[in-house]
Amino acid sequence: MAKSGALMFTAMNCDGCHGGDGSGWVGPSLADGRWRYGGADAEVFNSIYYGRPRGMPAFGGTLGAEGVWTLVTYIRSLPVPSDVPTESWEQR
């Protein structure tokens, strides 16, 4: 399911906004463990199905619920880095 979601992520041009592997481009990163509208399965589903402000289209009409769940499965399968809020350039 995650594999067909990965193909769908490219075929539906999701990567055009969210970057290859969902790493972020004009749209936010989907692989950083942080979420504007929540990262639970149902919340990610709603973002894709109904769209979000600032340019995220609603894909529910095109993909149907099953297609959107396929994408959710892929997105939730992306490896998430440990959430360390500090970025340091000093050698310690």
Binding site: G24, W25, P28, R34, R36, W89
Partner: peptide, 25 residues
């Protein structure tokens, strides 16, 4: 977005990315 794809943004706590490979620091 190639320039902004890394870690130069601070306005969105829900979007924190690793540095871009070609613009590490």
């Amino acid at each position: 977005w190639a320039l902004l794809s890394g870690d130069v943004r601070s306005d969105d706590p829900a979007d924190v990315r690793a540095p871009a490979d070609f613009l590490k620091d």
